[in-house]
Simulated scan of single mutants.
Amino acid sequence: MTSVRTALAHRVEPAPFTALVAAGDLACITAFVLLGVTVGHGGGDPGVDPGHVAVTVLPFAVGWAVTSLLAGVYARSTYASAKRAVVRTVPAWVGAALVAQALRATAAVPGGAAVTFFAVSVLVTLALLLPWRVAVSVLAS
């Protein structure tokens, strides 16, 4: 039986660089939420209610934590190629957005689920994540 450590060893490069990449990913996801809060239907200053921002980011961060590991976006081979970074990041983010919508559909997470919000979250966050991930692949090589 394969241990969790062995399974993750092929999907995550254990290095400080990976932590930096993960922080950049989280920054992209948070930027999407901040855009929605300030430009979208929130209409106010996100600094006024950081709890709202955190609660909105959380289901997306949880979704990304799960799907990014499954997709291997933190693997050495992903860092080595811009094309591979894009090919792994797109389905990982679509999956993360689906997880986020599933969480938002529960009573435990406010916000509710909506097909239109799913589509917006996929498109806008990919517009932020993909350039970052391509830049990571360039920096890593």
Rank of each mutant, 00 (worst) to 15 (best):
P91R: 01
A114W: 00
H52S: 11
P91D: 02
F32M: 07
L103P: 12
G51E: 12
H41M: 14
A31P: 09
L70G: 07
T67H: 13
T89S: 15
L70R: 07
S77E: 15
R104F: 00
R88F: 03
T67N: 13
G44D: 13
A23I: 05
A15N: 08
G112L: 08
G36S: 08
V57A: 14
A97L: 01
V33H: 05
A31F: 00
A80G: 02
A15W: 04
Y74A: 00
Y74I: 00
A22H: 08
V99F: 11
A27L: 15
A27S: 11
A80K: 10
A75M: 04
G36I: 02
G72K: 10
A22T: 10
R104A: 10
G72R: 11
V57L: 02
A75P: 05
V57P: 09
G112A: 03
P59Y: 00
S77K: 14
A31V: 03
C28E: 05
K83F: 12
P50N: 02
R11L: 10
A65H: 09
W64N: 10
A19I: 04
A19G: 15
V33W: 07
G40I: 06
V57G: 06
V55K: 14
G36H: 04
A102F: 01
G63M: 03
R104C: 07
A92R: 11
V99S: 01
D45C: 03
V86K: 02
H52N: 12
P50G: 02
A108D: 09
F60T: 14
V33A: 11
G63K: 06
A100C: 05
I29C: 04
V37P: 08
A75V: 02
C28P: 06
A19E: 06
V21T: 14
G111M: 07
T56N: 14
K83S: 15
A54I: 01
L98G: 09
D45E: 11
V57K: 12
Y79C: 11
G43Q: 14
A97F: 10
T56W: 04
P91W: 03
A15V: 01
T18E: 07
G72A: 05
L20H: 08
V90C: 09
Y79F: 08
Q101W: 01
T30K: 08
V94G: 13
L70I: 15
R11N: 06
V37Q: 15
V48R: 15
V12K: 13
A22E: 03
A82C: 07
D25S: 10
W64M: 01
L34M: 12
G112K: 11
A75F: 00
V109Q: 03
L35V: 14
G63P: 06
L70K: 12
A71E: 13
A19H: 14
L70Q: 12
Y79W: 04
A71L: 01
D49W: 05
A71N: 08
L35A: 10
L34S: 08
D45T: 06
A31I: 01
V109C: 02
A85S: 15
H52V: 00
V12Y: 15
A80D: 14
F32C: 10
H52T: 01
A80H: 13
F32A: 05
T56R: 04
A85Y: 02
V66E: 05
A107W: 12
T106W: 09
T18L: 11
G51L: 08
G43N: 06
T89L: 06
